[in-house]
Simulated scan of single mutants.
Amino acid sequence: MIPRSSDPEPEISVVMTTCSRAHLLPGVLDALLGQSLLANVSVEMVIVDDQSTDNTPEVLARYQAEAAIPVRILQGAKQGVAAARNLAVQHARGRWLASFDDDEIAPPHWLQTLYGVAQQNHAVCVGGATALSLPEGRSFSEVGPRARRLLGEILFSEERSMQFHELPSTNNVLIRRDVFESLGGFDLNFTEGGEDTDLFQRMHRAGHRMWLAPEAKVLHLIPPRRLDPHVLSQSAMRTGAIEARLAGARNSLPSLLYNLTGRLVLAVARDLPQLAAGRLSRQPAKVLDAQLSLAVTAGLYRGLSAARGGSSQFLSRMDFRSRHGERPDTPPRQ
């Protein structure tokens, strides 16, 4: 346990990890420091710099010196996103944790909305919505619903309790810290993704009150590289492989085989016909969506070895962030 400061504890800790995204941080941090809630609720920020190789440390130091609220900067050990998120929480002092990503813009009412919904509904976890901001010159007509989901789009219209199959995302969620700690935090075995799904599934199974807040909508900044069909396909395969790993973590191989069977049926009954129809009608978005669904099935099949602990190398090979030039410090795919 990290020793707590003797200063009065804030009500909310905004926790975020970052790595080599200095070009995005000013917009991200300006939006967070402009939250309306800061006028009447005590808030701090805890940011883990997970071994950036650009000028991220200088950008963070400037904001730390100039911010009107406490900003703590920690150095990560590049041991995966789960370890970096846990590190931020270990040093957080707030009663609530507001988890955010380093490639998003929050409207001024974002934190106020999450906090208000939690208080009004006695919820220990509140998840917000995520809209996409595409690069200049790109259109939503290019990306179908499956592609948008892979890019992080989470849209819903009703403020209500979450169903078991509904999960928030760590890019936009408020969690009571004692609940997070009671669940043991993020599982460090999920080094390549899926740590958030695992945590929130455990939260559901523990019977905690979880809520949806559609008005707490953030804007996810999509770089051009993420729209590359090759990168999207690898992201889809990761999704399938991570699903397999989650099933393995739950010792649920029968469930995994059941899901795989269902995906294979969908591939034959839905995806392959959609792929053919999209090509005949020259609808690239429909073609891409069908290909992505097939890629999830392929990833699930390849990830069967995850149930026996053997898919880590497969997942690492498909890390679109480090291998395909999304970070400024990494070369583009050849």
Rank of each mutant, 00 (worst) to 15 (best):
D103Y: 03
V265F: 11
N172G: 15
E181P: 00
Y258C: 00
N171R: 08
A307K: 03
S281Q: 15
I69Y: 02
S20I: 11
K217Y: 00
A269P: 00
Q90E: 12
S281P: 01
P107W: 08
A84S: 15
V59L: 07
V126I: 12
H23M: 05
R149V: 04
L304Q: 06
L29V: 05
L256P: 01
Q274N: 10
R176D: 14
L292C: 10
P70N: 02
Q112R: 08
G194R: 00
V179G: 06
C19K: 14
S312F: 02
I175W: 06
D49A: 04
S312N: 04
N40P: 00
Q201L: 12
A84E: 06
P284I: 08
D198K: 08
T170G: 11
Q119Y: 01
T18M: 02
L199K: 09
L25R: 02
S281L: 13
H220C: 09
R95S: 10
I2G: 00
I222T: 12
I242L: 13
Q120D: 09
Q313H: 00
R308S: 11
V231P: 02
S42R: 14
L151D: 03
D7Q: 13
V59H: 01
G310S: 04
L38I: 14
R95P: 00
N86V: 08
W211E: 13
R95I: 05
E9Q: 14
R250Y: 14
G194V: 03
A68E: 14
A98D: 07
F314N: 06
H109E: 15
M318D: 03
E192T: 07
S99W: 01
K286G: 09
T170E: 05
H122G: 08
S157N: 09
Y115F: 14
P135L: 14
A77S: 13
I222H: 03
L174P: 03
V14H: 01
V173K: 03
L266E: 12
A31C: 15
S6I: 10
L292E: 05
A82P: 10
V15E: 07
V268L: 13
S141D: 15
E153Q: 14
P284R: 09
R205V: 12
Q79D: 00
L32R: 10
R226A: 15
L294S: 03
S281T: 13
A84I: 03
A216I: 06
A61T: 12
L24I: 03
D187A: 07
T56V: 09
R270Q: 12
H220Q: 11
V179D: 12
L300N: 02
R95L: 08
A241C: 07
G240D: 13
H165F: 05
R226Q: 15
E153P: 03
A213V: 08
S293H: 15
T197V: 11
N55H: 11
R62W: 08
P328H: 10
A147E: 01
Q283P: 04
N251E: 00
A249E: 10
I12C: 02
V268C: 10
I2R: 10
P328W: 04
